[in-house]
Amino acid sequence: MDQTALIEAAKERFDFDAWPRLVGVEAARRTTGFVLDLRSSFTGWAMERRIAHGDRGYADYFQEVPEPEHRVMVRVTEHASHDAALLALLELLSGSMVVSLPRLDDLLIGDVTFCGHDEQVNALFFVRHNVLVDTRSIGDAPVSVLPFARLVDQQIFAASA
């Protein structure tokens, strides 16, 4: 058994074949050189730093100033195509110890979106066009990452061509 088998298993776990596929103009839309800038978007949140992540991606770290136990990590990685981004999302999800995770497409964030098994959305993984986004609460006290995810999605959408 090799990596392929595990990926095939992950497709089954996360119902990959049922993921919505973009068609036509939307499928061709790409975002290249996308650089996130959330610093002025959230009152009371400070950007800790930006570091390189994976292959040509980066991770931004934020901390809520009045409540420093609230921290959020946003990872952004561009891929060659929408399909490649979907496969990267699948690979990310395959590392989860959970057999399956809930889809969260109702929020209209991303083209394909997953979250954790919790009431509050402490982690959100989505693909918009050719960009994979991984947003997580990483502070000592959990905080919803939805506002971050929504804004990231908007910025990707605005930057797409």
Partner: peptide, 15 residues
């Protein structure tokens, strides 16, 4: 332990 999404926080794919 990540009780909700079971995801890794300290490993990542590169190359």
């Amino acid at each position: 332990y990540d009780m909700t999404s079971g995801a890794s926080f300290y490993t990542a794919q590169s190359a």
